[in-house]
Design a protein around this nucleic acid. Structure first.
Length: 920
RNA sequence: GCCCGGAUGGUGGAAUUGGUAGACACCCAGGACUUAAAAUCCUGUGUCCAUUGCGGACGUGCGGGUUCAAGUCCCGCUCCGGGUACCA
């Protein structure tokens, strides 16, 4: 074989390993550039062709940046804690560390074969104690800090204690669940335990009894982003609401900064939109409604204070703390029945029954703050306890849910904003003029909102309020395979371990299951207590703990004195380019931004946002192949003839299908069930049908990169993955197309070699035509890499090689820069050719060539000439011709006469260097 | 329901600010080389009509519009993908 990819690739992979070609160090003389991939969870299935897509793109970019003179940090590691290894451990008794280690080895082997430029000396694994020491350390920092709202940053809890000792919590503006106010005296009168309980309401990592997503099948609590439509994202098991004592992170304190930061990063609009919606900022007012017969005021949150005169009833959530208190004896029984029914409905049921209106009058009334009219209070489960205050003022005329409720219970509907037809439906739009509204009559909605808020504040019965949908992140998991909390309990109160005790290593257990009494697996560990005998926390941390700051750790992975040294963070700063899947939009990408902001507040990281630019690579979908079995037989009909029979499509392994033609021998061996299969062929072939589906084992459409590397080489695989289409798009994998890229590789090789496959380049001076091809290519490749348009870059390589082949060009002056151009895409072949060209150092040290416009410029411009917008012929004119010259030349041209047909053109449009359009 | 994307040949896709639609490939067909195969090379390849040489008409999901000129801009739909869901 002329182009012996397997020898070349092995040779250079070994060379890179032995020479540590990709080792990176701080270098103050060169600008830094940090390219990061989302690190993988090493699953047992290994990599399929979809996984490396993003890695290839980031690798090309890294190599390019290096050749552009940057000091590039391009690390890789493993998100090694996770459910699959633990589930496997439960089934087999195999320690998850062993499974994980094995899977990592397999991943590494696969990754190495693709020829990535990772600096493996910087590898991190989230399950490594040397790594999770810093995860635990950060948790302690979160515990010992609170969020100062005025300064919008984290401050030590010790500052808070000082403030309490001086003047209590009155006037302290902090993110907190603390409702009770106290003075300095009040603070001092509290017991140690009471004080700790108060402080817990301020800490950024706090223990509290909260409503959690409990997944009985997984035996653990899940965060909001781990639950989708009432089922766990991992495994798809039902999830229910349950009240439990849990560690949480006060991420809500950072909601505003998380939102504002989005304006400063280069992420796709759709991703920013997802995060914006997830954070869910809404501006409105909090209003107090006096409850009749009680010394209580019901607090509601509304984004439409302008509609207050249309509020004809109140609704509180079934879980509202006052539900029982305010219900009159007369309604007590009914309310109890209702709230209990509501509580017993699962999340799932509540969601599927969205359209069903239900609720119950409590017998209680409150007073309208402006009119003094009595307003009835209902309890209904369309109001959520977890959002706002868990209570609303219902305005049926201008809120569709309130409208449905009012219609169902026959409550009055009062129109207060003109513009809709409230006989038909509620008018929810935020435009119109206020009516039936006393002092805000005739105002526009926005003006009315401001006026009402002002009036509420003057009367002391309400104020402007900004509300977020974002919830605090529940941080405990009742699982084994995760980071242990550096926490012990004394008198039932949690205490942080001393930093010197870190890392607190994950203990051995006899079984990876909860205890008989329902405690998490760590409760099985022997001596799971401190030296003093205090019990240690038995929960472990969730998946996002380890992945929230791994990008910082890569900067200084072996440091055992700090998460990252100030020298390293000052140099590397932040991630310049982050590539990964969009599925992390509401999980990892929110948590790590929060985590980084906190670390920034306490002086560990130096940038407010960790990921400057982020690209989501599109999913590679599978292309499934089908055979058509005649129902009830063992006969299979080719795709084109299937309609003549009563058939059933069956997935067939794509690896025994080539160009949609089934290898029938392989098929009979593929599954014993088909051993005696018979085929109805067309043109002597069995043609398969196909469909685009998710790439998955169950569809038999998984394509393994190892097989392709074996057949075509890693360089071809890299190029083909890029050639498939734009990086961000979802696109189906079709192995057929790889042949075209493989042909290109062979053609490239032949430019440097004679028919006997001997290296042979000419030292002759390049011609203008050859220089033009080269410089056109340098320009296109540079521009395409800068805008991550790798598919068009590969096309340009093909065009370039086709043209050079046509020109029979084998000149060093052209081929040498071309080798550098291609090296970031196909590093192995480039290294080989580079060496053959007489270089002694790796091509990664080469400088990326710069194009010269003078070589690209044409002496002539080609003008397509159209008549009334239809292109009719082309004309070549000297470059730099004036509009008048172009027009004259066109009208004089022979072909023009035919289309002019003797008429005088009404108008001639000349766009220099572009087009001529003659209007007749 | 709401919010984002997207729709271009048999297939993947290309096309600065509106300026030659289909680059580059795959597939397919025909041919050259070969005992044969592989590999390689050449030709054709949006659809339809005409094919004796020209040529011509239609074409970027659908229906309108703006413009000398629309895949690209505007209005109204259809379908597909993603996010989110009683968030007041």
């Amino acid at each position: 074989m002329e182009y012996n990819f397997s020898a070349i690739e092995q040779k250079w992979q070994q060379y890179w390993r032995e020479n540590k070609t990709y080792k990176t160090d701080i270098d103050p003389n060169r600008p830094k550039f940090y390219v990061l991939d989302m690190f993988p969870y090493p699953s047992g299935a290994g990599l399929h062709v979809g996984h490396p897509l993003g890695y290839i793109a980031s690798d090309i970019y890294s190599r390019y940046k290096k050749q552009k003179g940057f000091n590039v940090l391009h690390p890789m590691g493993y998100d090694a804690y996770g459910l699959p290894a633990e589930q496997y451990a439960i089934q087999t008794g195999q320690h998850p560390a062993i499974t994980t280690e094995k899977n990592i080895e397999r991943y590494r082997e696969q990754l190495d074969k693709i020829g990535f430029s990772f600096d493996w000396d910087r590898e991190v694994r989230t399950c490594d104690p040397r790594y999770y020491k810093w995860t635990q350390w950060t948790f302690i920092q979160l515990y010992t800090h609170y969020f100062d709202i005025k300064e919008q940053k984290a401050r030590p809890v010790s500052d808070l204690i000082t403030a309490f000792e001086r003047s209590g919590n009155i006037g302290v503006e902090a993110a907190t669940d603390q409702e009770e106010e106290f003075t300095a005296v009040g603070w001092r009168q509290k017991s140690e335990k009471e004080q700790q309980q108060v402080l817990m309401n301020y800490r950024l990592a706090y223990l509290s009894e909260t409503m959690v997503n409990w997944c009985p099948k997984l035996g653990t609590v899940l965060a909001n982003d781990e639950v989708k439509e009432g089922f766990s994202v991992r495994g798809g098991h039902p999830v229910e609401k349950k009240k439990m004592m849990q560690w949480s992170l006060r991420i809500t304190a950072y909601a505003d900064r998380l939102l504002k930061g989005l304006d400063t990063v280069e992420w796709s609009d759709s991703l920013k939109e997802i995060q914006k919606n997830w954070i869910g900022r809404s501006e409105g007012a909090t209003i107090f409604f006096k409850i009749k017969g009680h010394d209580l005021s019901l607090e509601v949150f509304t984004t439409r204070p302008d509609t207050i005169f249309g509020s004809t009833f109140m609704v509180i959530a079934p879980e509202h703390e006052w539900t029982e208190k305010i219900t009159t004896p007369e309604y007590s029984e009914k309310v109890k029945t209702y709230t209990e029914a509501a509580r017993n409905r699962t999340e799932r049921e509540r969601m599927t029954e969205v359209k069903t209106v239900s609720g119950q009058f409590t017998g209680a009334w409150c007073e309208h703050p402006f009119t003094g009219e009595p307003v009835p209070i209902y309890v209904a489960d369309y109001v959520l306890a977890g959002y706002g205050t868990g209570a609303i003022m219902a305005v049926p005329a201008h809120d569709s849910r309130d409208y449905a409720f009012a219609r169902h219970f026959g409550l009055p509907i009062v129109e207060v904003v003109s513009g809709g037809n409230i006989e038909e439906e509620s008018y929810d739009a935020k435009t119109g003029t206020l009516i039936n509204s006393d002092f805000i009559n005739d105002m526009e909605v926005n003006a009315a909102i401001t006026t009402v808020i002002q009036r509420l504040e003057d009367k002391g019965i309400g104020r402007k309020r900004i509300n977020f949908r974002l919830r605090d992140a529940i941080f405990s998991r009742q699982r084994y395979w995760g980071e242990p909390f550096p926490v012990y309990y004394k008198d039932g109160m949690p205490y942080m371990m001393d930093e010197s005790k870190l890392p607190l290593e994950l203990p051995e257990v006899d079984k990876y299951l909860p205890t008989e009494s329902g405690e998490p697996p760590l409760a099985r560990a022997k001596n799971w207590q401190t030296e003093e005998g205090y019990p240690i926390e038995t929960n472990t941390m969730p998946g996002f703990a380890g992945s929230s700051a791994y990008y910082l750790r890569y900067m200084d992975p072996k440091n055992d004195k700090a998460l990252v040294s100030s020298e390293a963070i000052e140099y590397w700063q932040d991630v310049d380019l982050y590539i990964g899947g969009a599925e992390h939009a509401t999980g990892h990408l929110v948590y790590s931004r929060f985590w980084n902001k906190f670390l920034c507040d306490i002086g560990v990281s130096v940038k407010e946002e960790p990921f400057k630019k982020l690209i989501n690579q599109g999913m590679i979908q599978g292309r499934s192949s089908f055979v058509y079995r005649v129902k009830g037989t063992n006969t299979f009909v080719s795709h084109g003839l299937r309609k003549e029979y009563d058939t059933m499509p069956i997935h067939v392994d794509v690896n025994i299908v080539n160009n949609d033609i089934l290898d029938t021998d392989a098929f009979t061996k593929w599954n014993p069930e088909f051993k005696n299969a018979e085929f109805v062929l067309e043109d002597g072939k069995y043609i398969c049908g196909w469909e685009v589906e998710k790439m998955s084992k169950s569809f038999h459409n998984v394509v393994n990169p190892d097989d392709l590397i074996q057949r075509y080489g890693a360089d071809t695989l890299r190029l083909y993955e890029m050639f498939l289409g734009p990086l961000e798009y979802a696109k189906p994998w079709d192995t057929n197309g790889i042949e075209g890229v493989f042909r290109f590789m062979k053609k490239l090789w032949r430019l440097y070699h004679n028919p006997q496959n001997d290296f042979e380049v000419s030292e002759e001076k390049a011609t203008d035509a050859e220089l033009k091809v080269l410089h056109k290519t340098i320009k296109k490749i540079s521009e395409d890499i800068e805008k991550f348009s790798f598919n068009t870059a590969v096309s340009q390589f093909m065009i370039c090689v086709n043209e050079l082949t046509d020109l029979k060009c084998n000149k060093r002056e052209i081929l040498s820069p071309l080798t550098v151009l291609v090296s970031s895409f196909a590093p192995h072949i480039a290294e080989e050719l580079w060496q053959q060209l007489g270089n002694h150092e790796s091509i990664v040290t080469a400088t990326f060539p710069q194009w010269k416009e003078e070589y690209i410029a044409d002496a002539m411009d080609m003008y397509p000439v159209s008549f009334n917008g239809k292109t009719r012929f082309k004309i070549e004119l000297p470059a730099g011709s004036t509009k008048e010259e172009v027009e004259a030349a066109v009208l004089k041209a022979d072909e023009a006469q035919k289309w002019l047909d003797g008429k005088t053109p009404k108008k001639v449009i000349v766009v220099p260097k572009k087009i001529v359009n003659v209007v007749i």
